[in-house]
Amino acid sequence: MSIAIEKEKCVGCGRCAEVCPGNLLVLRDGKAGIREVKDCWGCTACVKECPRQAIFYYLAADLGGAGGRLYAQDSPDTLTWIMKWPQGTEDIITVNKNKSNEY
């Protein structure tokens, strides 16, 4: 489990590095990178903070991961989660931020 950064999408704004609770993200040559993939907690703070959806969260093989990528798009009223699958399809789940969880 960890996050990965798609360098071609990264604009080097540094917002991910600012919010990572483990100080794991750093800017190198204008692009964000993770110091050590094994140190990620999977909180997805950086995934939600990224304005370009350049960061995704994934489950590694030890957690039964099969290549899915979890992205997020934050807006004032909704948080949209995008799951992209290796075969090219995607699932989208939109959470209304003004509505409580049912459970």
Partner: peptide, 10 residues
């Protein structure tokens, strides 16, 4: 979020 991704992925 790992839990939801896991359900969908597997």
């Amino acid at each position: 979020p790992a839990q939801t991704l896991r359900w969908r992925e597997t």
